[in-house]
Amino acid sequence: MPSRKSRLTSAALALGAVLMLPPAAQAATTVTFVAPQNYRDGNLAWGPVDQRLTLEGLERIIRSLAARRLPPGYEIDVAVLDLDLAGKIDPLRARSGELRVMRQDTWPSMTLRYSLRRSGRVVARGEETLRAMNYLTDPVAVRSTDALRFEKAMLDSWFRTRFAALEAKRSGS
């Protein structure tokens, strides 16, 4: 099993390789948040700053996964229609700094609409609700310190399964 240091080094090298690609070789990604004030969750309870940080974080995650999981020449538009973050806000624990309580029945979910294009032509589209019902058993997400670690794992799983055939093309299989 690789050490944390070697995993971090590998991740840094992979990110560097993606950043060195010319812009045309990277997957073009558009992320929009449709009526975020109506989302079931998304740090709405703690104000617009927390919600902005959550949405910016999700946008970075989606862009990064698209760049990593889609081969060159593909573009994807993702519209987030609804969001329910992992855990639930517990106002009684807010004073101790622990705002979200994670339990088995508070899994993350996200409804999104996507359109995948190649050379300007739509090759796939759909609307899906993603759920990570076993989010507390994901060893990578549980060990991570990222604020959106469970949502990132859920989105990574979706990209991996939804676009598996494309990823095989990217790796030359």
Rank of each mutant, 00 (worst) to 15 (best):
D84S: 04
P23S: 11
R125G: 01
K169A: 12
R117E: 05
G126Y: 02
D156G: 15
A86E: 08
V122F: 04
G126M: 08
T32E: 04
A12N: 07
W158R: 00
R149L: 06
P2Y: 08
S173Q: 06
A35L: 05
V31L: 09
L130G: 06
A35K: 09
R100D: 04
N38Y: 10
A168R: 14
V34W: 01
A17E: 12
A17I: 06
L92R: 12
V49M: 06
A24E: 12
L55K: 00
P139Q: 03
G42D: 01
R160E: 12
E151P: 00
F150I: 12
A24M: 03
K88S: 05
M1F: 13
V18H: 02
L8P: 00
V49I: 09
G97T: 12
G87C: 02
A124M: 13
A124D: 14
G57T: 04
A67M: 11
R63W: 06
D77V: 10
D41V: 01
L148Y: 02
S10M: 13
L70P: 04
F33R: 10
P108R: 04
M102H: 06
N38Q: 15
D138V: 00
R149S: 01
G126K: 02
G57I: 08
E75F: 02
Q104H: 09
P91S: 11
R121S: 09
T111V: 09
R121Y: 10
M1P: 13
L136V: 04
L155M: 10
A168K: 13
A12M: 10
D156M: 11
A35H: 13
V49R: 06
W158D: 00
G73R: 03
R121Q: 15
G126C: 11
P71A: 09
